[in-house]
């Protein structure tokens, strides 16, 4: 059974694309056939983070509009041979995305891939809505800071109302996970940033992982390698663990400078 996972946040700059790249690379290195799609039409970034920007010929929009076949647009990653990137167009805008087109492409991808990761644009407009519409699960990327938390809360509201699963009203609603990124244990301890517990208390969804703020993330972006595949770093380890949890493993949560939020996440795991 293939899974469509949307990586979303509402707010920009919190680490959606970085996380999409890391998650898809992590799933692929665990042996799953994985594709990551850039839904941020007009602000093409994923291909750069994945280091395949020089190999883009056709894109997602070309496929939707029937100008290219899906296989022509998919770019195979040079490091992992079961990882593919579906880049987006830099010249078009989000109106080029259609619901039918997105559905058709996703259905085609479902036949070939175990995991389909949708890298959502920021905001709550068309691009973000279509990125989440057909999702089975959601990774909500949040920074420990009030505006990011509020925007994530808004996205959770949309995930539970404006998606195919919500509209069909099935038992089986979208499973949402929280990925807390750019976390600085020291600043959180000093009260400058929100604590993991504060964020969980507001968002009330299970915690997938906490990614520490790390210069390794920026270095990885600069060289176009997903964090998880670049140098060994705390951020890379945290992403690996988050991916393992997304893949169904039950790993204990370790967060520097924080009380173990095991109880909290278990509590909210049930209510969300």
């Amino acid at each position: 059974m293939s899974k469509v996972i949307v990586v979303t946040s509402g707010k920009g700059g919190v680490g959606k694309t970085t996380s999409s790249a890391a998650i898809s690379a992590g799933l692929a290195s665990r042996g799953h056939r994985t594709v990551v799609i850039d839904f941020d039409v007009g602000l093409r970034n994923l291909d750069m983070i994945m280091g395949c920007e020089r190999r883009v010929v056709f894109d997602f929009i070309n496929v939707i509009q029937g100008d290219a076949k899906l296989n022509q647009a998919l770019i195979r990653d040079r490091r992992l041979d079961n990882l593919y990137v579906l880049p987006t167009s830099q010249t078009r805008d989000k109106d080029a995305l259609t619901q039918e087109g997105v559905e058709k492409v996703l259905n085609e991808l479902r036949e070939e891939f175990d995991y389909i990761i949708c890298d959502s644009p920021a905001g709550i407009e068309r691009g973000a809505q279509l990125a989440m519409y057909y999702a089975d699960e959601a990774v909500v990327v949040t920074n420990p800071e009030v505006s990011s938390v509020r925007d994530s809360d808004r996205m959770l509201g949309l995930l539970s109302s404006k998606t195919a699963r919500a509209e069909r009203g099935e038992e089986d609603q979208i499973k949402s996970h929280l990925l807390l990124t750019r976390f600085d244990p020291k600043r959180s301890g000093d009260g400058e940033m929100m604590s993991v517990e504060d964020v969980l208390e507001i968002l009330a969804i299970p915690l997938l992982g906490v990614i520490p703020e790390s210069p390794a993330v920026l270095r990885a972006s600069n060289v176009g390698v997903p964090v998880i595949l670049n140098e060994k770093s705390r951020a890379a380890t945290a992403y690996e663990e988050a991916v393992a949890r997304l893949d169904g493993e039950d790993l204990p949560m370790k967060i520097e400078g924080e009380k173990v939020p095991g109880l909290m996440s278990r509590l909210f795991g049930r209510s969300a």
């Binding site: 808004r154 959770l156 509201g157 009330a204």
Partner: peptide, 8 residues
Amino acid sequence: TMPVRSGQ
């Protein structure tokens, strides 16, 4: 019985 989210 669900959380009421921002914007809802």
